[in-house]
Amino acid sequence: MPAPSRRTALVVSGLTLGVVATGCGEGATPPPARTGGRSDGPDETLLGEARTDLVAALALVRAARRAHPSLRPRLVGLQRTHRDQLSVLDPEGRTGPAEGPEVPARAPEALRSVVRAEERLVRRLVTWSVAAESGPLARALAASAAGVAQQLALLEEER
């Protein structure tokens, strides 16, 4: 994973504080977190879960590519995607490594296992996005789900 820049570190801390500027064309103003006061606690917990799942997903993709050289080209996009997502959501690499995931012995089954895990990840990222108090965090999580959905669509196209 590339070393996080200072700005990236500021961005990720901003995700749970609701201070990252987002926009929809010129002149858009950053949406604040919900009005009426909020606690950072729930979003920190939610972000931690998202990071853990992303680390686990990346570990499975890497393990599948290691175990099955024939899958390397097909899964390289997912690997890059998760690496880049973690560079945004966990720029300091606070999340510990995932336990060594089990990879099926046959490549087609390994691929199916990766796809199932990624489909589940998309659902969870959307759920966390909806649950997030911070608008910017919700945006980052929903965008991460969309990024994984793109990779799944490309994998489906190649079948």
């Binding site: 990236t8 880049d84 945004v88 990024g147």
Partner: peptide, 14 residues
């Protein structure tokens, strides 16, 4: 081209 965070590319590579 696929993106890691579609719609939030401003967060990537900063």
């Amino acid at each position: 081209e696929p993106e890691p965070l579609p719609g939030a590319g401003d967060l990537v590579g900063t």
